[in-house]
Write a protein that binds this DNA or RNA. Structure first.
Length: 288
DNA sequence: TATGCGCCGAGAATAAATAT
DNA sequence: ATATTTATTCTCGGCGCATA
């Protein structure tokens, strides 16, 4: 066995990167919504992915904190207000006892809480205000996935997700995601994958091929569902999604090697199925 | 007005880390 | 050794929007 001198980074002249294996963690991240939006904007990312939480939905988060020895149920809702019943739960010997505590109203637009117990109104308002503002690690993960969904491609390394292969063309994009995560104390790990190693090339090929095959499969399933109640717009959108996937298969051809032909075949099958369906629906429509 | 569709949050399932 | 907490993905259902 020969001993190679330590390779400088990046790998070596001529050996280009295929991409990176990345994983992120937002464990324990607690950030306010405005701070998250600011972090996205400062990093040059689309801040539309971090949306506001409507008072109604924030209240369901707040309910978790308010549910100690208490059961909260929605009793009514109209355009402006949602009403909840708070029922106190206590242990009474060998059984539980329940007593009506209050009825609480939530204004869906202002996020204002009202109820006839002043202390409880204040407590509920505090929890609600916090829930409207606060974003958890899970929320940040959702934001990251939406960013990648809209602007880059991530191929799961394992079916459960969490670790992804990212093609090198998106390196600049991850740089921005990394900057964003840095501002909110999240962490992203990035392992460069150089081209030319047998196992690296194989693993990249398999994960990219599996990811693209999943897209093609989605198209196939969607087309199979279409019927005479499907709108023209939906059919057009399906065709456009198929074109996008075709573009991706082309763009990642170098990763796919011998897997490309199979993907091309499957995509063509999905496109033909759509074409046939469109023709059949047009025929049905003409008769009707 | 009804319907399809995307978005969002909840909850289940699962896994891993941490506390008891 | 067991229970609890935390994080993650997946699926489902409700809501609002656009459109026929």
């Amino acid at each position: 066995m020969t001993t190679n001198p330590p390779a400088p980074f990046p790998v070596a002249a001529g050996a280009r990167l295929l991409g990176e294996v990345i994983a992120w963690t937002c464990s324990g991240v607690a950030v306010t919504h405005p701070a998250l939006v600011a972090a996205l904007r400062d990093a040059g990312l689309d801040d539309g992915v971090a949306r506001e939480l409507a008072p109604k939905h924030a209240f369901t988060r707040a309910c978790k904190k308010l549910s100690d020895q208490r059961i909260i149920r929605q009793v009514a809702e109209d355009a402006a207000t949602v009403r909840f019943q708070f029922t106190h739960e206590s242990r009474d010997g060998d059984r539980f006892a329940y007593t009506l505590e209050t009825l609480l109203a939530l204004d869906k637009t202002t996020g204002q809480v009202t109820c006839d117990l002043p202390g409880l109104a204040t407590l509920a308002q505090e929890h609600l205000d916090h829930a409207i503002d606060a974003r958890s690690g899970a929320d940040v993960t959702r934001v990251i996935q939406k960013l990648f969904d809209r602007h880059a491609d991530l191929f799961p390394v394992r079916p459960q997700g969490g670790v992804y292969f990212m093609p090198d063309r998106h390196t600049g994009f991850v740089d921005r995601v990394q900057a964003m995560l840095g501002r909110i104390n999240g962490q992203i790990l990035r392992f460069p994958v150089p081209g030319g190693t047998p196992e690296g090339d194989r693993s990249v090929k398999e994960s990219v091929a599996a990811g693209l095959a999943a897209l093609v499969d989605d198209h196939r399933k969607a087309v199979a569902q279409f019927g005479d109640d499907t709108r023209d717009e939906t059919l057009k959108r399906a065709a456009s999604k198929i074109r996008v996937t075709q573009f991706k298969i082309q763009a990642y051809a170098e990763y796919l090697s011998d897997e490309k032909a199979k993907l091309d075949r499957e995509l063509t099958a999905a496109r033909d199925a759509l074409r046939q369906k469109v023709e059949r629906l047009a025929a049905v429509l003409a008769v009707a």
